[in-house]
Amino acid sequence: MSRPRHDRTPASATGRFVALYVVLLVLLAANMAGTLLSLGPWAIPARLAVAAGMVAVIATTFMRLRQGTVLVRLVAVMSLLWILFLFVLTFADFLTR
């Protein structure tokens, strides 16, 4: 009964989980604090970028994408690509009307 390699997480992972959890909280705080600054046209991209950073942390750590097989990572990338298709081509209409 061999156990799959990527199934097993080392005991030291607890530290990494907690550390990245703190990173998430810092990012959240930064994003909330960012609303107090007036960033002008950069406000929306900045907020979305921070949120994207949080998503990346959750996906790579809590969902273990870092240890995932190539196939699973490919699946994750594929979903992003298809969401991109949806957004880019729809906005191609709304931005050029």
Binding site: G34, A43, R47, L48, V50, A51, M54, V55, I58
Partner: peptide
């Protein structure tokens, strides 16, 4: 993940 995006796009943006 969905909540992070919901929070950002509805409350913060």
């Amino acid at each position: 993940i969905v909540w992070v995006l919901v929070y950002c796009s509805l409350y913060l943006v």
